[in-house]
C-alpha cells in the first residue's frame, strides 16, 4: 500500500515536471517564431493565446458539435473494425491453414497508409461520412484482427482439453474458454486501434465534410484564427489522452481478471 502510494506520488511529480517542461518548450518555440516581424500574425501560437482561445472554445456550441461529430466517426469506425476484425481474427487464430493463406495479403494491406484509400473512398462511397468510416475501419481493423488471432492462438491447450474432458461442446469451448482467454488481447488491439483512429481522423476530416475537429482546424486556418487553431489541436491531444486512459483502465481491469499471473 505504502509502495503504491509512493509510486503514485512519483507519477504525479514527474507528470507535473513533464508538463512544465513541455509548456516551457512551447513558450520558447512560440517566442522564437514570432521574434521575426514578418511572423507577428502567428502570435496566436503562444500558450497564453491558445489557452485563452481554448477557454472560449469550452463555451462554443460549434466546438462541442465538432467533438461529437468526430467521436461519432471514431465510434462507428471502431465498431465496423470490431465486427470485422474479431470474427476474422478468431478464424485466423484457430485454423493454421487460414493463417497461412491470409498471412501475406494481410501484411501487405496493413502496410498501406489508410489515407492512400482516400481518393478511392470518395469515388466509391456516396457521402463523405461513409468515406471517413471506411478510412477509419481500414486503419483500425488490422490491430484488432491480428491481436485477436494471437489471443486465440495462445489459448492454453490444457484449458481446452480440460473443458472437452468435462463435456464441453464446440460452442461452449468458444464462449467459455477461447473468448475469455483472448479477451485481453482483443482489448490491446482495441487500444492500438483507437490510437490509430484518432490519428487518422483529422486528415480524414480534411476530406470535405463540414463538421468535426479536422474540419474545424481547416476552418480556423482559412479564417487566420491561429489561437483557435492551436486550441483545437490542444483539445485533440487532450481528448485522445482521455480516450486512451479509458481503454487503458478497462485493459487493466481485464488483465487482472482474465490473465493467469505467473507464480
Amino acid at each position: 500500500m505504502n509502495d503504491s502510494n509512493h509510486t503514485f506520488k512519483e507519477k504525479l511529480i514527474f507528470g507535473i515536471a513533464g508538463s512544465v517542461i513541455f509548456l516551457l518548450i512551447w513558450t520558447g518555440a512560440g517566442y522564437l517564431l514570432t521574434i521575426h516581424p514578418d511572423f507577428q500574425h502567428f502570435a496566436g501560437f503562444h500558450p497564453k493565446a491558445t489557452f485563452k482561445a481554448l477557454y472560449h472554445l469550452l463555451f462554443d456550441d460549434l466546438f462541442w458539435n465538432s467533438v461529437l461529430a468526430s467521436l461519432n466517426r471514431i465510434i462507428v469506425g471502431l465498431c465496423f473494425s470490431l465486427v470485422l476484425g474479431i470474427p476474422i481474427g478468431m478464424l485466423i487464430g484457430f485454423y493454421k491453414l487460414i493463417w497461412q493463406i491470409t498471412y501475406f495479403p494481410i501484411q501487405f494491406l496493413r502496410m498501406i497508409s489508410p489515407l492512400s484509400w482516400m481518393p478511392i473512398a470518395i469515388l466509391v462511397f456516396a457521402s463523405f461520412d461513409s468515406s471517413i468510416y471506411f478510412l477509419i475501419t481500414v486503419a483500425c481493423v488490422w490491430p484488432i484482427l491480428l491481436n485477436t488471432a494471437q489471443g486465440v492462438n495462445r489459448v492454453n491447450k490444457d484449458f481446452i482439453n480440460m473443458a472437452i474432458n468435462q463435456g464441453a461442446t464446440d460452442w461452449q469451448l468458444l464462449t467459455k474458454i477461447i473468448l475469455p482467454s483472448a479477451l485481453p488481447y482483443m482489448i490491446i488491439g482495441l487500444r492500438l486501434a483507437l490510437g490509430i483512429a484518432w490519428v487518422i481522423l483529422v486528415p480524414a476530416e480534411f476530406l470535405g465534410v463540414s463538421s468535426g475537429l479536422g474540419y474545424s482546424i481547416n476552418d480556423a486556418r482559412d479564417t487566420l484564427e491561429y489561437d483557435r487553431l492551436l486550441a483545437i489541436v490542444f483539445a485533440i491531444g487532450c481528448l485522445g489522452l482521455m480516450l486512451d486512459s479509458l481503454v487503458q483502465f478497462v485493459e487493466k481491469r481485464c488483465y487482472l481478471k482474465f490473465m493467469a499471473k505467473p507464480g
Binding site: F159, N165, F258
Partner: peptide, 18 residues
C-alpha cells in the same frame, strides 16, 4: 470419445483464471 464419467486431472493446474 470424451465421457463425463471419466474425469482427468492434468499435471499443470488448469483452473480458469477468470
Amino acid at each position: 470419445g470424451p465421457d463425463s464419467s471419466i474425469s482427468l486431472i492434468f499435471q499443470k493446474s488448469t483452473l480458469l483464471p477468470w
